[in-house]
Simulated assay, not measured.
Amino acid sequence: MNKNYYAILMAGGIGSRFWPVSTKEFPKQFHDMLGSGETLIQKTFSRLSQIIPKENILILTHESYNDLILEQLPMVKQEQIVLEPAMRNTAPCILYASLKIKKLNPNAVMVVAPSDHWIEDEMQFVANLQRSFDLCEREESLMTLGILPTAPNTGYGYIEFDKLDSRSIKKVVQFREKPDSKTARRFIQSRNYLWNAGIFMWSVKSILKAFEEFQPEMYAHFMKGFEVYNSENEHAFIQENYPKAENISIDYAIMENAQNVYVLPATFDWNDLGTWGSLHEKLPKDDNNNAVVNANVLLQNSSNNIIRTALGKQVIVDGLDDYIIVDKDSVLLIYPKSKEQEIKGIVSQLK
Rank of each mutant, 00 (worst) to 15 (best):
L83I: 07
R88F: 07
M75E: 15
S98E: 03
N89T: 11
A86W: 09
S115F: 05
N105V: 10
N66W: 13
Y65P: 00
I101E: 01
P114G: 10
D116R: 05
P74Q: 08
P74D: 08
A97K: 00
P114N: 05
Q78L: 12
L83E: 00
K103Q: 05
D67A: 15
A108S: 09
M110H: 09
T61G: 03
V76H: 13
V82K: 04
Y96M: 01
L95D: 02
K77S: 15
Y65G: 00
C93Y: 10
L73F: 02
I69N: 00
L70I: 11
L73E: 04
M110S: 09
P92F: 01
V111I: 06
L70K: 11
E63Y: 10
N89R: 15
A86G: 06
P85E: 07
E84Y: 06
V76E: 12
Q80G: 01
S115N: 09
H62M: 14
I94T: 13
R88Y: 10
I94W: 01
K102Q: 12
E79H: 15
V82R: 01
N66S: 12
V76T: 14
L83N: 00
L104H: 06
Q80A: 06
K77C: 10
M110P: 08
N89H: 09
Q72R: 10
L68Y: 11
N66E: 13
T61K: 06
H62Y: 13
A108P: 02
E71K: 14
T61Q: 02
Q78M: 11
P106S: 15
P92D: 01
E79R: 14
P85Q: 07
E79A: 11
N89A: 12
E71R: 12
T90S: 15
Y96L: 04
Q72H: 06
I81H: 08
A97G: 02
I69L: 05
A86M: 10
L99D: 02
P106F: 04
N66D: 07
N107C: 10
C93H: 07
Q80S: 08
E79V: 15
N89W: 09
Q72F: 08
L60G: 03
A91Q: 02
Q78W: 09
I101M: 08
E71S: 15
S64I: 14
